[in-house]
Amino acid sequence: MKQIVELTINGDPQSLAVEGHRSLLDTLREEAGLTGTKKGCDVGDCGACTVIVDGQPVNACLMLAVEAQGRNVETVEGMQQSIDILHPLQDAFMRHGASQCGFCTPGILMMARKLIEENPDPSDDEIRFGLSGNICRCTGYTKIFDAVRSAAAEIRAVRAQEETV
């Protein structure tokens, strides 16, 4: 039996007909056509499917679509500020080589965004801890740490400038 789930995805109100057992991950990928969020395990072990629901990072493979009823879901597709302005994290990931195969990247970007929002000046240990639920098998994480540090600094600088204006 399909149910109608009403939710907001990247600012767009949507109503989707989904089976009760469908995960939010499958719903995003198969029903909403948002395939940026990846499936690395489907059982909550890898973090590739990390999205933000009502401000909190969740593994979309562990959440049912019906649980997202009335909630606000953010995915990697909503990260860009505009068509040609990337989020500082996206830009930093490109510059620092933080994305190799890219399969972990959307999940790590979402998690890192949340991390920086909560803690604009994270220490190395805080970055490591913040990303400890996200597996990247390509990079050895070194370049990811570089990118997160650099994006955080950039965001802080922009903020400081805004405050002085």
């Binding site: 990846k38 995915t75 990697v76 597709e77 990931f93 490109m94 195969c101 399969f103």
Partner: peptide, 23 residues
């Protein structure tokens, strides 16, 4: 030189197409 990788923009925006994204 570490030029910008031509394929990475698609990876950071979620637009890159992996086989499981096709339907």
């Amino acid at each position: 030189k570490s030029v910008k990788r031509e394929d990475v923009i698609e990876k950071v925006t979620g637009e890159g197409v992996y086989v499981a994204d096709l339907k």
